[in-house]
Simulated scan of single mutants.
Amino acid sequence: MTIETLREQMITAMKAGNKLKKEVLSSVLSTAKNMAIEKGCKDNISEEIVNAAILKELKTATEMLDTCPSDRLEQLEEFTLRIEILKEIAPTMMDKSEIERYVIQLVEENNIELITKNKGQIMKVITPSLKGKADGKLVNTVVQEILKNE
């Protein structure tokens, strides 16, 4: 998602009177700006940075939901709604089969032997290219499964 699209959605939510959605989008926008400043490109915020900000906010909201006491119904509902809003705008993540195909392709391209001893080398090659496209834990699990089958 581009920064412009994010701003447009925030303005639309504001005009519609959807306070929570406006708040969530504003938070993502703020996180994206901060991430861009850290990377030294505050005037040119890429889609990659915006997507990373969305995923960061989604992770934070999920953690807040998980740690919220069960008797706090209002907060539980708010966190659940935040997660739903963030999932609507979050980039689509690769599923297990897509990750599997990608891992095998990258291993072949880099001439890495599929043995347990090379797991670190495989992860080193794969992780940067899948950042923001796939869940890191799932990637790790898929690599372990591939190595077990070899």
Rank of each mutant, 00 (worst) to 15 (best):
G17N: 07
I122K: 02
K56S: 11
I126Q: 03
V50P: 00
T60Q: 13
E48W: 03
K59H: 09
T62W: 02
D43R: 05
A32D: 07
A16F: 08
K119V: 03
V24M: 05
K131A: 15
M10G: 03
T67G: 11
D95A: 12
L76Q: 06
N51I: 02
E145A: 08
T127Y: 05
G40V: 10
N140H: 12
L130V: 09
V142L: 07
L76D: 02
V50F: 01
K59D: 15
M14D: 13
F79R: 03
L76C: 07
L58A: 07
S30P: 00
K22G: 14
E150G: 15
K87F: 04
I54T: 01
K119Y: 13
L58C: 06
V28P: 01
T92D: 07
L138N: 01
A36M: 08
K39I: 02
Q105K: 13
R101F: 15
I112G: 05
N111R: 09
T31R: 05
S46H: 03
V139S: 04
K87V: 09
V107T: 09
L25C: 06
Q9I: 01
I112L: 11
T67Q: 13
K19G: 03
L65N: 09
E109F: 06
E38M: 04
T92Q: 11
I85H: 00
N118E: 08
M123A: 08
S70G: 07
A13Y: 09
Q75G: 02
S30A: 15
Q121F: 13
R7W: 14
L20Q: 07
R7A: 07
L73E: 12
L81I: 04
K21P: 01
E113S: 08
L114M: 10
P91V: 04
I115T: 14
V50Q: 00
V107F: 10
E38F: 05
I37H: 08
D71R: 03
M1E: 10
D66M: 15
I45P: 01
R72W: 14
E38Q: 10
V24T: 06
K133A: 09
N34E: 11
I89A: 05
A32F: 05
N44I: 13
K148N: 15
P69K: 12
K33P: 00
M93R: 10
T5W: 09
I146Q: 06
T67W: 04
E4D: 08
E74C: 02
I104V: 14
K15W: 01
K137L: 14
K96V: 12
E84V: 10
G132K: 04
M1I: 06
D43Q: 09
Q121K: 12
L147T: 14
K15N: 12
G120S: 07
L76F: 06
T127P: 02
L86S: 10
T80K: 15
L147Q: 06
A90V: 13
Q105T: 15
K19D: 13
L20F: 10
E150D: 11
V24C: 04
E78N: 06
E88K: 09
E150Q: 15
E113W: 13
V139K: 05
K117P: 01
S70D: 11
V143R: 05
Q9M: 12
R82H: 04
L138H: 01
N110Q: 08
N111P: 00
I45K: 02
E113K: 13
